[in-house]
């Protein structure tokens, strides 16, 4: 009985959930990035149709649907658990130091995971509102490809980032958010392995390196998309 409770409410278990949901979201990022990189394809090669067909597949395929529900649940659990942990951790030191030098012993991003996460959460809301909500409930244009009706998410996306008034601001918000995500991941990726106890002296250096590369490369490629659309396309 206490063991079962221990898998939900103990300090360690809360970190298991944090780590598992965080790592699942890392997998989601890879999939999401792979799909979105199609936005970088040249228009002459049919990028528009390819992307819109892909977007339709992502909103209708039953397997993808299950994965997307898992993603929603992961974000929700990760956020709720993150807030609970951050509050509990603050309570563990009610009286602060008059003079503290945390920079002497730890990296700033590891100490500001709650703040970095909150910025990511705000970004997620803005991002869902800009594209996901329109894809699901409109307003969005539709057209036919070989007798199949598709929603034109491609044109919506390009127009959003190229918009004369809001395009630049949106591009900047996206790039900053990806930098924040990068700092979250550079600490979070390897931390999740430690939280799960998946550390072995032989493999931990690999996890550390992969985590750093993951936290730099994935957000950088995401950030490339709005930069490309706004400044180059």
């Amino acid at each position: 009985m206490s063991q079962v409770a221990g898998l939900f409410n103990s300090s360690l278990a809360r970190k298991y959930w944090m780590a598992l949901t965080g790592l699942f979201l890392c997998l989601f990022l890879v999939g999401h990035l792979a799909g979105n990189l199609q936005l970088l394809l040249p228009l002459e090669d049919g990028a528009k149709d390819q992307f819109n067909l892909y977007a339709k597949f992502m909103t209708t395929n039953p397997v993808v649907k299950i994965l997307s529900y898992l993603t929603y649940i992961s974000i929700l659990l990760h956020v709720v658990d993150g807030i609970v942990l951050t509050i509990r951790n603050r309570k563990a030191r009610p009286q602060k130091y008059a003079y503290n030098k945390p920079g002497a012993n730890s990296a700033w991003n590891s100490r500001f995971m709650g703040f970095l996460g909150t910025v990511i959460l705000v970004f997620i809301v803005l991002h869902l509102n800009a594209f996901w909500a329109k894809m699901h409930w409109g307003p969005i244009d539709t057209y036919m490809i070989d007798g199949e009706e598709v929603k034109d998410l491609y044109t919506l996306t390009i127009a959003s980032f190229q918009d004369a008034s809001a395009g630049l601001g949106m591009t900047i918000v996206y790039v900053i958010s990806m930098i924040v995500l990068g700092f979250h991941l550079v600490h979070g990726f390897q931390s999740a392995f430690r939280s799960m106890g998946w550390n072995h002296p032989k493999y931990m250096p690999i996890v550390m390196t992969v985590g750093k590369l993951f936290g730099i490369i994935i957000p950088a490629l995401f950030a490339l998309i709005p930069i490309y659309i706004h400044f180059i396309l």
């Binding site: 103990s10 300090s11 360690l12 509990r88 951790n89 309570k91 012993n105 590891s110 600490h187 939280s195």
Partner: peptide
């Protein structure tokens, strides 16, 4: 030991590594 640790009101681990340094 973990349940006693939680009961005493210590916080959770964020793996910042400050402890190891100090």
């Amino acid at each position: 030991m973990v349940s006693q640790m939680d009961e005493e009101g210590f916080g959770n681990c964020t793996n910042t590594g400050a402890c190891e340094v100090e």
